[in-house]
């Protein structure tokens, strides 16, 4: 890579104009080359200053009161405990302990109920899948039913994998790193040695344009990328994505990429989250 190509890559990445593969290359360069990281940060700061070039417009004066009123209503999370234990009366501690115990018991009951409901739902899905299999075999022109059956079976397997990995107390969790395109998104990559499966648990993903989708790419030690999954977030902009075992082989990094067109395999977009996988999580 010539100095011009390198500068082109870093300046464009700071501006957010790179396609996903190029952004992955840029992130790799920034991670591995301190000089590139410094150059990128300089361009990033310049990019942020571009905002100052806008002509100034005044917002509705009433907006100020709306913002402040919303702030007053909003009870912000406290980062410091409001009460000190040494000043807390014993009966308050006892009451708090009782409340926590009841809450924990209630939570446990809820979890058990959820497990039962999930098992029941899985049984229904499995039953439907088998019924669709029978329909597919018995009737002519049932390609659609066969496709649906495959989709149901696939969804069932994914859901089972998610549950198993999340239930494994020894599952290794790798926190996803944010990028310039994260906009508050976060999550973790869970790997269960016991179950031989991995799951991405994501939250607060940025909205996608109509027809868009997220893609999960895995990078091997030779920097080769493999498409591992494609998904659309749920209504709360979260997702739980099960990854196939074969595609996780030799993965050293995982990328979550937003694409504008789910139906176009070549569509690319910004890297929203990424993680470097620990050796235990990336090798079998």
């Amino acid at each position: 890579m010539t100095p011009e190509e390198r500068e082109e890559l870093l300046a464009a990445h700071a501006l957010g104009t790179l396609s996903a593969p190029d952004a992955v290359d840029a992130d790799h360069l920034i991670r591995t080359d301190p000089a590139a990281a410094t150059q990128f940060r300089a361009y990033r700061e310049i990019a942020d200053l571009i905002a100052l070039s806008v002509p100034l417009r005044r917002a509705d004066p009433a907006l100020r009161e709306r913002v402040l009123a919303a702030a007053r209503r909003s009870r912000r999370r406290s980062w410091r405990p409001s009460l000190s234990g040494r000043h807390m009366p014993v009966y308050v501690l006892a009451a708090a302990l009782a409340a926590v115990t009841i809450w924990a018991a209630t939570l446990q009951t809820t979890l058990v109920q959820l497990r039962h409901q999930t098992a029941a739902l899985s049984a229904v899905v499995e039953s439907d899948a088998k019924r669709l299999d029978r329909l597919a075999g018995a009737a002519s022109g049932v390609q659609e039913a066969r496709t649906l059956s495959l989709q149901l079976n696939s969804a069932l397997k994914d859901e089972q994998a998610v549950q198993k990995v999340q239930a494994d107390p020894k599952a290794v969790a790798t926190v996803m790193e944010q990028t310039a395109a994260s906009h508050g998104a976060g999550g973790a990559y869970l790997t269960s040695e016991l179950e031989g499966a991995s799951v991405l648990v994501l939250h607060s993903l940025p909205s996608l344009p109509l027809g868009g989708a997220y893609r999960v790419w895995l990078e091997d030690p030779l920097s080769q990328l493999t498409l591992a999954a494609s998904f659309v977030p749920d209504s709360s902009m979260g997702a739980r994505v099960a990854l196939q075992r074969d595609t996780r082989l030799e993965a050293v990094r995982v990328y979550v990429v937003a694409t504008s067109r789910a139906d176009d395999p070549a569509a690319t977009g910004p890297v929203v989250l990424m993680a470097t996988l620990p050796k235990r999580a990336s090798t079998r």
């Binding site: 011009e4 082109e8 300046a11 464009a12 940060r41 361009y43 310049i46 200053l49 571009i50």
Partner: peptide, 26 residues
């Protein structure tokens, strides 16, 4: 397009060096 982005960003970086906290680091 790529060349214009690179040249434009480079000129901005040169013009705005005094406002970039990373320039002194570099």
């Amino acid at each position: 397009v790529k060349t214009r982005v690179r040249l434009g960003m480079r000129k901005l970086r040169e013009s705005l060096a005094e406002f970039s906290t990373w320039e002194s680091d570099r």
